[in-house]
Nucleic acid binder design. Structure first.
Length: 747
DNA sequence: TATAATTCTCTTTTT
DNA sequence: GAGAATTATA
C-alpha cells in the first residue's frame, strides 16, 4: 500500500509555509513540541504534517492518532487532510480525547466488567446519581452539595485517583464524606454499566495500564500521535498519551501556554511547560508569525499577557499592517451595552460587513439573554453557541433515555426517567420497589421490571402497568437488535410508548414545542443514519448515543450562515472573526469574582488573551457601570484587563483623566465616561439612570457608609478613578465601587 | 398518585 | 428572576 513519494507532490505540501512551519511539518521521528502563538497557523501545520507523513510513506492512515478539542475541529482536520492527500482517510483516528477513549473502551471495557453497551453519563446524569448516593448515605445535602461532591470527584478522576486512592489521602471531615460518596457513586455507576465523562479517560488509562496486550496493541498501532491544544490537557489525558506513544515516541503536540483556560477542569499547564523535561530529546519549534490579526490587536494581546508570570516567551508579530485602534466603550448598564452592540452591528452590516464576520464574546452564558433580546428587536440574525439547551430538554432526554434503556438494561437512571413518562401508573413507590428488588436479587432493572410478578409488595395495578410497559419495550428491543435505522427506531419508540400521543393530547403551545423538539431529534437521527451509518460498520443506536453524549457546544457552530455569532470566551478558543465584541469587561464579571477568589487571575487573563486574539480586524471592548446580575443590581468597575492595554492602542487615549482630580462630576472631557455618554446619545437611548449622582466623591478611609444593597460598611481605601473600597459588614468582604454611581452615602 | 403551590438555591467557564 | 426541589392538597 505504500505509495512512492512523488517529489512534486511533497513539495506542493510545503508551499506557502514559513520556515518554522515547514520545519514542524517535516520534522522526523521523535517527540515534537510546537509552541504556536495565536493565529500562527497551527491547524495548518498539523494538517500538513499529517499529509506529509502520509505522502512520504512514513505513515499509513491507520497509524495516525490525531486528537483535537472538539468534534468540529476533528472533522475539519480530516477534511483538510483528505483535500491535501486527495483520498479518503477513514482509517485515521481523528477525534477528541473523549471520543477516542469511548471507542477504545467499546472494544475493551469488558475487561473492567462493563459491556460494550455502556452508557455515557453527562454531568447532569452524573449529578443526579451523586445526589442519590448522598441521600442513600444519609448525608446532609445542604452541607455537602451534589455540585461540590461532583467537583471533588471529577477532580480526583482527572488526577487518576480512584475512590480507594482518594480515601488514603483524606485529611478532613469534608474529604472523608467525599470519599464515602465517591465510593458509593463508583459502585452505582458500575452497577448501571455507565461511565461519566471523566471515567472515559480514567478507564481507558486503566485498561492500558492493566493489560499489557492491550497497551502493546494500541501503542504499536499508533505509530504517530498528534495532539492539538496540548495546553488544555489534564493529568489523565497526559497519562493516556504517554501510554499510547510509549512505543514509537512519535508524539507531536501543539499548543500555547498563553491560551490555557481550562485549569478549573483539571487541565494542567505544566504538561506543556514541562514537555521538554519529559522528552529531553524533543524538537521544539516556535511559531511566532501571526496571520490573523492587525498589529494593534496583537500589541494589545502581548501587553495584556505580559502581566502573567511564567509564560514561555513568544514574540507574536504580523505583517498585516497596523490596523484600527481598539474601541473601548463604557455604557450605563447591560441594556445600554446591548443596545450599543446591536446598533454598531447594524451600522457595520449597512457598510457591507456580513453578519457571519461578527462575533460577540462574554464571560458567562447568562449574559447572552439581554443581548439576544436586543438583536431580536433589531432583527439581526444570530446564533448562540453553548448553553446547550436542546439535549437538556426534558422531552429530548426522555427520548434518549428510552434508547439508552433499550441498549443498556442495567441503567436504572434511564429506567427511572422513562418508566412513568408518559404517565402510565408506575409511580415513585412502585419504581423504588422494582429497583430495590433488582438490587437485592442482583439483577438488572430491566429484568426486575420484566418479572414484575416476582417483585414483592407491588400492587396489582402497578404490576399490570409494568407488564404492559415492558411488553412494549421488549418489542422495541427486537427492533434495535434487528439493526433497523436509528431514525425508525426512534419513531417507533415515540409512537409505541405513547409518548407522542400524550404530548398531543395536551393541546398546549408548550406541548407543541416539545413535539417539534422531538421531530428535530428524529431529524438528527435520520441524518446520522444517512451519513455516519452509511460509511461506518459500527453504526447503530449505540454509536448514535455516543455521538450525542460527546457532542460539545462548539460543535453546533455553523459557518457562513449570515448570522452573528454569540458565545462564551471559552467557546471562542480556536476560532477567528474579522470583528469581535467583548462585552461585560468589568471586574467581578471578567475577571470573574469566583475566579479571583480562587486565585485564578492569570487564567482569566489568558481568557482575555484568547478573546482579543480571535479578532482579525476590529475589536470592541465594552463594560457597564451597572449590571443586573442575580436579582440585585451591582455596580462594577471597569476590568483591570482594559487598563492593562496600553491606552494608545485604544481610541480612548486619555482615560487617565477619569477620576484623576476630576472635579465633582464635571470636567469629564476626554474621559471614558464621555465616550459612554456619547454612545448613549448616539443610540438615542437614555441609558437609564446611573450617571445622575455627580456628587463629589469625597469619601475618606475610615468613613462609615451605607449601601442600598450591601448595607453598612466602612471605607478601607480610595483609589484613583473615583473608586472607593468598602468593607461591608454583612458580607465580610471588600467591594470596589465607583463613588459617583454606587448608591452609597455616609452614615 | 398527580398536580399545584411554594420555597429555595443558584450563576463561572465545559468534555 | 428562573428553575428545581419540596411540600400541600385533591
Amino acid at each position: 500500500m505504500l505509495r512512492v513519494p512523488s517529489k512534486e507532490a511533497v513539495d506542493a505540501l510545503l508551499e506557502g509555509l514559513n520556515e518554522p512551519q515547514r520545519e514542524a511539518v517535516t520534522a522526523g521521528a521523535g517527540p515534537l513540541l510546537i509552541l504556536a502563538g495565536a493565529g500562527s497557523g497551527k491547524t495548518r501545520v498539523l494538517t500538513h504534517r499529517i499529509a506529509y507523513l502520509l505522502r512520504t510513506g512514513q505513515a499509513r492512515a491507520d497509524e495516525i492518532l490525531a486528537i483535537t478539542f472538539t468534534n468540529k475541529a476533528a472533522q475539519e482536520m480530516r477534511e483538510r487532510v483528505e483535500l491535501l492527500v486527495g483520498r479518503a482517510t477513514r482509517a485515521m483516528w481523528v477525534m477528541t480525547f473523549h471520543s477516542a477513549c469511548a471507542r477504545m473502551l467499546r472494544a475493551e471495557a469488558h475487561r473492567l466488567g462493563y459491556t460494550r453497551q455502556f452508557t455515557i453519563y453527562d454531568s447532569a446524569d452524573s449529578r443526579r446519581l451523586i445526589k442519590r448516593c448522598i441521600d442513600d448515605l444519609d448525608i446532609d445535602p445542604k452541607r455537602f452539595t451534589p455540585r461540590a461532591m461532583q467537583a471533588q470527584i471529577s477532580d480526583a478522576k482527572n488526577k487518576l485517583r480512584s475512590a480507594e486512592d482518594y480515601r488514603k489521602l483524606v485529611g478532613s471531615f469534608f474529604e472523608q464524606t467525599v470519599a464515602d460518596v465517591y465510593e458509593s457513586y463508583e459502585r452505582e455507576l458500575h452497577r448501571a454499566n455507565a461511565m461519566d465523562f471523566d471515567d472515559l479517560l480514567f478507564r481507558a488509562v486503566n485498561v492500558l495500564e492493566l493489560f499489557q496486550e492491550v497497551r502493546d496493541r494500541y501503542a504499536t498501532a499508533f505509530r504517530w500521535v498528534l495532539v492539538d491544544e496540548y495546553q488544555d490537557t489534564n493529568h489523565a489525558q497526559y497519562r493516556w498519551l504517554q501510554l499510547l506513544s510509549g512505543e514509537h515516541r512519535n508524539l507531536a503536540v501543539v499548543g500555547d501556554d498563553a491560551q490555557s483556560i481550562y485549569g478549573f477542569r483539571g487541565a494542567d499547564i505544566t504538561n506543556i511547560l514541562e514537555f521538554e523535561d519529559d522528552f529531553p530529546d524533543a524538537t521544539v519549534i516556535k511559531l511566532e508569525q501571526n496571520y490573523r490579526s492587525t498589529q494593534m490587536i496583537l500589541s494589545a494581546a502581548n501587553a495584556l499577557i505580559s502581566n502573567n508570570r511564567g509564560q514561555t516567551v513568544k514574540h507574536l508579530w504580523t505583517d498585516l499592517g497596523e490596523g484600527d485602534t481598539i474601541k473601548v466603550r463604557e455604557l450605563a448598564d447591560e441594556h445600554a451595552e446591548a443596545r450599543y452592540v446591536a446598533a454598531e452591528i447594524e451600522r457595520l452590516v449597512d457598510e457591507g460587513v456580513s453578519r457571519s464576520e461578527l462575533a460577540v464574546f462574554y464571560r458567562t452564558n447568562s449574559m447572552s439573554r439581554v443581548l439576544e433580546d436586543m438583536l431580536v428587536r433589531a432583527q439581526i440574525g444570530y446564533q448562540v453557541i453553548g448553553g446547550t439547551k436542546f439535549y437538556e430538554r426534558a422531552e429530548v432526554k426522555d427520548a434518549v433515555a428510552y434508547l439508552i434503556f433499550l441498549l443498556n438494561p442495567s441503567d436504572g437512571g434511564a429506567f427511572t426517567r422513562i418508566a412513568n413518562s408518559p404517565k402510565r401508573g408506575i409511580g415513585q413507590t412502585s419504581l423504588s420497589r422494582v429497583l430495590a428488588h433488582a438490587e437485592t436479587m442482583g439483577i438488572s432493572p430491566w429484568e426486575a421490571a420484566a418479572g414484575a410478578d416476582e417483585v414483592p409488595t407491588l400492587g396489582t395495578a402497578a404490576r399490570r402497568a409494568l407488564e404492559r410497559f415492558m411488553a412494549t419495550m421488549e418489542r422495541l428491543r427486537e427492533r434495535v437488535e434487528s439493526g433497523a435505522p436509528v431514525g425508525d427506531i426512534l419513531e417507533d419508540v415515540l409512537r409505541e410508548t405513547g409518548y407522542r400521543d400524550a404530548l398531543e393530547a395536551e393541546r398546549t403551545i408548550e406541548a407543541q414545542g416539545r413535539i417539534e423538539n422531538l421531530e428535530e431529534l428524529v431529524r438528527v437521527a435520520r441524518e446520522y443514519d444517512a451519513t455516519a451509518g452509511a460509511e461506518s460498520d459500527t453504526a447503530g443506536v449505540a454509536e448514535f448515543l455516543q455521538q450525542i453524549a460527546l457532542l460539545s457546544d462548539a460543535d453546533q457552530l455553523q459557518d457562513d450562515e449570515g448570522l452573528v455569532t454569540l458565545m462564551t470566551l471559552h467557546n471562542a478558543k480556536g476560532l477567528e472573526f474579522p470583528i469581535v465584541f467583548m462585552i461585560g469587561a468589568e471586574d467581578g464579571v471578567f475577571p470573574h469574582s469566583r475566579a479571583l477568589d480562587e486565585g485564578g487571575l492569570e487564567e482569566e487573563r489568558r481568557l482575555a488573551y484568547v478573546g482579543i486574539t480571535r479578532a482579525m480586524r476590529d475589536l470592541y471592548i465594552t463594560y457597564a457601570r451597572r449590571r443586573n446580575s442575580f436579582g440585585a443590581e451591582s455596580y462594577g468597575l471597569r476590568s483591570r484587563f482594559i487598563d492593562e492595554i496600553p491606552r494608545e492602542l485604544t481610541d480612548q487615549p486619555d482615560r487617565n483623566a477619569v477620576g484623576a482630580g476630576r472635579p465633582a462630576g464635571f470636567g469629564r472631557v476626554a474621559s471614558w465616561s464621555t465616550a459612554a455618554a456619547a454612545s448613549d446619545e448616539a443610540l438615542g437611548g437614555g441609558g437609564g439612570g446611573g450617571g445622575g449622582a455627580g456628587a463629589a466623591s469625597v469619601f475618606r478611609v475610615g468613613d462609615d457608609v451605607v449601601h442600598a444593597a450591601f448595607g453598612d460598611g466602612v471605607v478601607t481605601g480610595v483609589e484613583p478613578g473615583g473608586i472607593v473600597v468598602v468593607n461591608f459588614a454583612g458580607e465580610g468582604r471588600e467591594r470596589k465601587l465607583m463613588a459617583d454611581y454606587a448608591p452609597i452615602r455616609r452614615r
